[in-house]
Design a protein around this nucleic acid. Structure first.
Length: 312
DNA sequence: AACTAGCACAACCGCACATGT
DNA sequence: AACATGTGCGGTTGTGCTAGT
C-alpha cells in the first residue's frame, strides 16, 4: 500500500488532553448512539477531534467499568503471568482483566512491572538472571506451552491452567474437562467483560463518572473552566468510583469472576463455539515455527512460580 | 525558593487486520 | 479480486506532577 491517508485532516484537529466539555459531548453522544461509527462522531458532536482520538478517549477513559488506581498484587501477578505467556499482546492480556484497559496495563508494565522483574531477577542470583530476562521468559514459557500443545492438547491446557493459576489451589475454578477440542473452553475467546454493576444503562456509569469528576473539578478550580484539562480530576473521580467496588486488600470478587471462566462457557458460548480461531489459537498456530525452533530446549525447567518468586 | 530528574499516564502515531462495496 | 474504509493494536511521545538537591 502507498500509505493510508490520515484518518482525518491534520489541520483544524485539536490534539492534547481532553477537556471536561469535550468529554461530556462525547459521552452524551455515545449515550444516545452507542459506541461505534467513530468517523461520524466528530462531525455529529462538533468535536474538533479526529475519530481515532474519540475512540481512544472512550475506550481508554470514558468507557464504563474501567477500574483506575493502583493495581493489586493479584493483578500484578496476573499481568506478569499473562505477559510471560502472551508477550506484549496487551489487548489479549487486558481481555482477562476487563476492568483495565490495554493502555493501562501496557503503561503499568512499562513503568512498574518490568523494573520490578528486573530488580528481582538481578537481586536474587546471577544464574536466574540469565534464565529469566523478560523476553526470554516470555519465549520460554510460550515455547513450553506450544511444545506441550504439539504433543497433547489436554496437557497443553493443563500447562496453561497451571501457569495461569496464581495459587496452587486453582482459585478460579479452572477444571480439566475432557470435551472435544472444538469445545475446548481454554481455546475460546475470553469471556466478555461483566456488565457494569448496578447500572441500568450501559453508559450510565460513565455519565456518573463525568458528573463526579466535574464536581471535583469545579471544587478544585471554579474560575478557569475551559483551560483545565480533565486529567487530574478524572483520575480522582474514577479513583473514588473504583474504591466503591474494590476491596482494600487483594482481589475483588470481580477480579476472580471475570477471569478465565473456563468451565463456565456452556451457557453463553454458543457464539464462541462458532468462532474457528480465537486469538489464543491463532497465536499458537502463527508461532508454530517458533515452537520448532525451541523444540530442543529444556522448557520444563522454567517455572512461572519461580518467575514471580520474591516479587510479592 | 528554584531547579532538575524521574515517574506516571494520557494521548498520539503508524501499521495491520477486518469488513463492506 | 481489488479497493476503500473502519477499527484494533502496540510502540512511542508529551506533559504534568513529585521528590530530591
Amino acid at each position: 500500500m502507498m500509505g493510508r491517508p490520515p484518518c482525518c485532516e491534520k489541520v483544524g484537529v485539536k490534539k492534547g488532553p481532553w477537556t471536561p466539555e469535550e468529554d461530556i459531548s462525547l459521552v452524551s453522544y455515545i449515550q444516545q448512539h452507542g459506541p461505534g461509527n467513530w468517523r461520524s462522531v466528530p462531525t455529529n458532536t462538533g468535536l474538533l477531534r479526529c475519530s481515532k482520538s474519540c475512540r481512544l478517549r472512550w475506550t481508554n477513559y470514558l468507557r464504563p467499568g474501567i477500574k483506575r488506581g493502583n493495581f493489586t498484587d493479584h493483578e500484578d501477578k496476573m499481568i506478569i503471568h499473562l505477559q510471560a505467556l502472551l508477550g506484549n499482546r496487551w489487548a489479549a492480556i487486558a481481555s482477562y482483566l476487563p476492568q483495565r484497559t490495554d493502555n493501562d496495563i501496557k503503561n503499568y508494565w512499562n513503568t512498574h512491572l518490568k523494573k520490578k522483574l528486573k530488580r528481582v531477577q538481578s537481586g536474587t542470583d546471577g544464574g536466574a538472571q540469565d534464565r529469566f530476562t523478560p523476553s526470554q521468559t516470555s519465549t520460554l514459557c510460550k515455547g513450553q506451552w506450544e511444545r506441550r500443545l504439539q504433543t497433547d492438547i489436554h496437557t497443553a491446557k493443563r500447562a496453561l491452567c497451571e501457569a495461569l493459576s496464581l495459587d496452587k489451589q486453582n482459585p478460579f475454578g479452572i477444571i480439566e474437562d475432557s470435551k472435544p477440542q472444538t469445545d475446548n473452553p481454554i481455546l475460546q475467546s475470553p469471556p466478555p467483560p461483566p456488565p457494569p454493576t448496578t447500572t441500568t444503562s450501559p453508559y450510565a456509569s460513565s455519565a456518573e463518572n463525568i458528573a463526579r469528576l466535574l464536581e471535583n473539578w469545579m471544587k478544585k478550580s471554579p474560575e478557569k473552566s475551559s483551560e483545565i484539562t480533565t486529567q487530574a480530576c478524572v483520575s480522582e473521580g474514577s479513583q473514588s468510583a473504583t474504591n466503591c467496588n474494590n476491596s482494600p486488600d487483594g482481589p475483588t470478587l470481580d477480579d476472580s469472576s471475570c477471569f478465565l471462566n473456563f468451565n463456565n462457557t456452556s451457557s453463553t458460548s454458543t457464539a464462541n463455539q462458532e468462532v474457528p480461531l480465537t486469538f489464543l489459537e491463532k497465536w499458537l498456530f502463527d508461532d508454530a515455527a517458533l515452537a520448532n525452533v525451541h523444540a530442543d530446549q529444556d522448557f520444563v525447567s522454567v517455572s512461572l512460580e519461580a518467575q514471580t518468586e520474591g516479587l510479592f
